[in-house]
Write a protein that binds this DNA or RNA. Structure first.
Lengths: 228, 228
DNA sequence: CCAAAAGTGTTATTAATACACCCATGC
DNA sequence: GCATGGGTGTATTAATAACACTTTTGG
């Protein structure tokens, strides 16, 4: 049974923006294309939707293919559907962005796809409408990170408060006051202080914390909302 | 030239959520389907993407077909792509929501499509994943309306402050304090008070205002952001 | 003259911002 | 012992929330 047999059919693409964070700041995982079309140019990682999978599944598949990570934080950004957006052929693309802990990437895979981590303020021009996608993704990340605890997906499980602060500073491109930042973060009661210290980045060492998701969910049930 | 000829192809649907507002509150324009599939059930207005149009254009076309309005406030909500979402056939749907001034609708067209305005708190069960779409659209509208002046699209050009307050109360399903609401609205300096009064809804009459978009844009350039 | 909705200010509370010094440690 | 980054508290300001009476006018 097919009610819509007279309707036009389209290729559906899935393009993925991968955010990462390290000591140098916020970064994107971009491909220097060694394949056609637009060989030699920079682009996002992409793929095509297959018949037997959902659009979300396709995005997961593409993201996992590049990063080796099966379960990651991922959100749909939206569909990009200009007629001429892809000169190769008419393709409607559904764009996703993912937040990953940069240490978890599979470096083999990343090399295989000729992908590189590029600082957010040094992103080159990208093919098609991919620059627009990145722009929107950054806006979305900023909005989202300011009202929901998604930023933690960019960090390892254990992180220090100075590290967390650098993350938010990288996302918003502003400098934050150390005392006010800590006060606010700790006041939300969703961070759990660990015994252990990170002695890598300073002599004194900074205490590790971890995000307590159960606690967060409990608070949300009672009307709490995260905000930085 | 077609680089992607081996890839699967899909029907792409466009589903549209139409918000309206009148004295009874916030409403949705829903279709009681007198056609297959799912004849007799409630659904959103939809259509299919055609080869020669962009996805945004398709949404505009569908919205205009139903409401008679060519230029309306419309935003993409996202793509819905579960394999089984439409039992009729595999269709990836891209959902939009629109905010219209309920007085501008073409009643003939609305009747033709067997569409009805349903209060937001009385929305029946909808076909496929349309209920999910509506849920997401409401969330989006709430977020959007609290940080950007999109609400004015639901009102006539001239509106009164009590009317505007009722609009926000309808969107957020809360009661607001009259004095605080006026103070905040007027403090943003984007409303222009008119000489004329609305004498319909009260004996004393309430002054009409209109949203000054130029003024708003100027303020935005200087870093202002709208917030209710 | 009265019912019904419009309009108007002040105070209290809470949240956001600004700001400077001591601490621990590896070298 | 000193350079480096980690950690802490208070005072000011701004935003939000709470709250009650007067005005206008059609019927």
């Amino acid at each position: 049974m097919n009610f819509y047999s007279n309707e036009d059919k389209f290729n559906i693409g899935v393009d993925c923006i991968v955010f990462g964070f390290d000591e140098d700041g916020l970064k994107l995982l971009l491909l220097k294309r060694n394949f056609e079309p637009a060989k030699g140019k920079w682009s996002l990682m992409g793929g095509f939707l297959n018949k037997q999978e959902s659009v979300d599944d396709a995005a997961s598949r593409v993201l996992s293919k590049l990063t080796g990570i099966d379960e990651l934080y991922m959100e749909q950004l939206g569909a990009f559907g200009d007629v001429e957006r892809d000169p190769g052929s008419r393709v409607v693309s559904i764009c996703y962005y993912a937040l990953i802990n940069i240490d978890e990437q599979d470096k083999e895979l990343v090399r295989k796809y000729n992908a590189f981590w590029i600082s957010i303020d040094q992103v080159p021009e990208l093919i098609f409408d991919h620059s627009l996608m990145v722009k929107k993704a950054l806006q979305r990340l900023r909005r989202k990170a300011s009202t929901q605890p998604v930023g933690f997906n960019l960090l390892p499980e254990k992180f220090t408060l100075p590290q967390l602060q650098r993350l938010y500073e990288a996302i918003y491109q502003v400098e934050l006051d150390k005392r006010n930042f800590r006060k606010k973060m700790l006041s939300m009661k969703v961070l759990e202080k660990l015994e252990e210290k990170d002695k890598e980045t300073s002599k004194r060492g900074a205490f590790y914390y971890k995000f307590n998701e159960d606690q967060y969910n409990k608070l949300v049930e009672n009307g709490f909302s995260f905000g930085v």
